Structures are given as structure tokens and as C-alpha cells.
Computed example of a mutant assay.
Amino acid sequence: MAKITIMGTGGFGVALAVMSHRFGHTVTLWGKFPEEINQIRSWGEHKKLLPGVAVHSGIHLTSDLEEGRGADVVILAVPSFAIRETARAAQSILGENTVVASVAKGLESGSQKRLSQVIEEEISDHSIVILSGPSHAEEIARGVPTTIVAASKCRESAEYIQDTLSNKTLRIYVSDDVIGVELGGALKNIIAVCAGICDGLQLGDNAKAALMTRGIAEIARLGTTMGADAETFSGLAGIGDLIVTCTSMHSRNHRTGILIGQGLTPDEAIERVGMTVEGCIATKSAYELAREKHVSMPIVEQLYDVLYRNKDIKQAISDLMGRPKRHENEKIWLQGGNEPA
């Protein structure tokens, strides 16, 4: 059994702590805000994010990061906007052989860097493992069977995380395609917002299925341009994560999209959801990356216009449906010198 420090008291951090303790690991759960730690300790659960999920008294809760020192594994479980600050703080408690993992999904605003790149800038002497795939915190915490991917440049570190965290309810595959796994996890949130808009507008199953299918095509197009393996996007970190995020009310991205589809402004929808909506943040980064890399991403472009340029949703849908005709086999267009759609 391992000694695990989890940084972040959001739903995923608490879920990982509950699961890891359930299967015999020694767990320290660190949170930045003492009042939140005290509430979880007092109530024995995270009432806002995981009501009804018991946080066992054997899980050490603390807002003093020094108490997380000496861990075999440190897991960063914070939103994308907090990943640099958290990685910088984590540096001070890492031992020589500590393996660093991250469950954050997104891109750094402004720089458009993948989160592993951000972490590596702050923790340069440890290999980083990215955990991604279809994995709602609500289900992990309750022991629902879940399968994810551990991606790293270092095979030994990825396999260590696989061996350490795998259990009767969590199956982990390993991958060396860090770029693909990270981009799949970050960009599917954009498509999930769009899927929610479809549901909010009551567009039906056909439109949503088309959106998801063409959405993964856009994600793969940008990903392979950036060096990812195309096969990754047909796996757990690609289509797997896309399906679960586009179809579940556990997804705050999906819920935000529903509210926008029902007539709320993006700001009103985000406020109603009340938590970080990674898909809205990632839309701006993906839009800028696509322009920089000269990659066609029409769904991303239309959502960007809706979120940041006040474009009417129905006009955005009309513009998507009215785009020039294309062949679905994108290689034909690539060979012909035209951009795929």
C-alpha cells in the first residue's frame, strides 16, 4: 500500500481520497482553505459536491501542506486555472522518488499550454503522469466501475500509478501519448457545452450524435497537428471521455450548455452552475490554438462566437449546417490541398 497526498478538495480530489482509503492506502487530503477542510471534517462528507459520500475519519484532512510530505504519490486535483500555483507549492513536499500525477483537464489560459507542460515548468525534476478518461467524481466515490488512462513520458511512472491506484472498481491503462490524452480531456469539455446547448434547445438525438461525431473529428485534427497519435482519440481519453461528458448531468459543462440553450447568457449559465466550467475556458484556448496551427475547427469557432462575441445560438447552428459541402473522409481533402471540415 502507498502513502498518497491529494492536493485539492473539489469533487475529484475527495473522490480519489475516499477510493484510495477504501483500498488500503494512507491518504492525506490537502485543501487551500481551512474553513472547507473543517467543514468536511465536521460533517464527514463534502455536502456541496459529494453529498452522502462518507469521508472516513482515517483520511487525514489538512490545510498545512507540510503534513503531506513524504508521499509515494502526490496527485494534483485542482481546476486548470490553479494548476501552476498548486504544482509550485507541491515542489516543496516532494521526495526524490515521489511520483506526481494530475487529474486536471484543460489548457492554461493565455499560454494555451497543456497542463503537463505547466507542471513540468514548476516541477522539473519529476516525471508527470496524466490521468484522464470517462470518470465522474460522483461515481468514483461510490465505487462504480471506472476505466481511465495513465499517460506519461516515463513508462515506469505510468506503470507505477497503474499498479498503485488500480483496484476492483478502477481499471487503469497506460499510454505514452501525453499530448493526445491531455487534449482529449481538455477539448471534449468544449463539445460537452455544445451538447448541452443541443439539449437545452431540444434539438433531438440526430443533432447531438452529429455534434459528438464531428466534435471528436475536430479534436483529433488539432491533436494530430500538435503531435498526438490519432488512435488515442478513439480510446478512453478521446471518444470515451467525450461520451460521458456530453450525456451526463454530472457534467457541469453539459449543464452549462443546457442553460445557454434555454436562453441564459453564458455568464448567467456559469453563475447558475456555480463552479469552474472548463469547457468555456478551453474554448478560447482551442480557438487561438486552431488559428495558430491553421486547423479548421468550425464547432469550436461557433461556440467561441457564442461565448465571447454574443452570437445568437440559432445563427451559429445555421452557419454550421450551411458550411460548404465536404467528403467525410478527411484524407481526400488533405491530399487535394483543401482544409477538412
Rank of each mutant, 00 (worst) to 15 (best):
I148F: 13
L211N: 02
S166D: 10
S296G: 00
Q262D: 12
D312C: 07
P298T: 11
A230E: 15
K168V: 08
A269I: 01
A104F: 05
A17L: 06
H254Q: 04
E35C: 03
E292M: 01
I332L: 15
M297T: 12
N310W: 01
I128S: 07
A137R: 04
E330A: 10
A220L: 03
P34V: 09
E67G: 02
Q315G: 04
P298K: 05
A210T: 12
I37M: 10
I281W: 14
Q112P: 00
I161M: 08
G185V: 06
H126Q: 10
A158S: 12
S166Q: 13
H25F: 06
I281K: 15
V178Q: 12
G95M: 15
G238P: 13
V144R: 01
L222F: 14
V74P: 10
A290V: 04
F81G: 00
S111K: 01
G263T: 02
A217S: 13
G133P: 08
T28H: 13
V18C: 11
A77H: 03
G196L: 05
N97C: 01
A186F: 11
P340T: 01
C154S: 15
K113S: 09
I216T: 03
K153M: 05
D64M: 00
G274S: 10
G337T: 07
S109E: 15
T28W: 10
A101L: 07
M297L: 15
Q202Y: 10
G238K: 06
P266R: 07
S175I: 04
V14Y: 10
E35V: 00
G215A: 12
G227L: 04
S318P: 02
M7T: 00
N167L: 08
V181G: 05
T98F: 09
I59A: 07
A2L: 06
L236S: 11
R221D: 14
R41Q: 15
E36Q: 15
T26R: 10
A15S: 15
S285P: 03
V181N: 07
E159G: 00
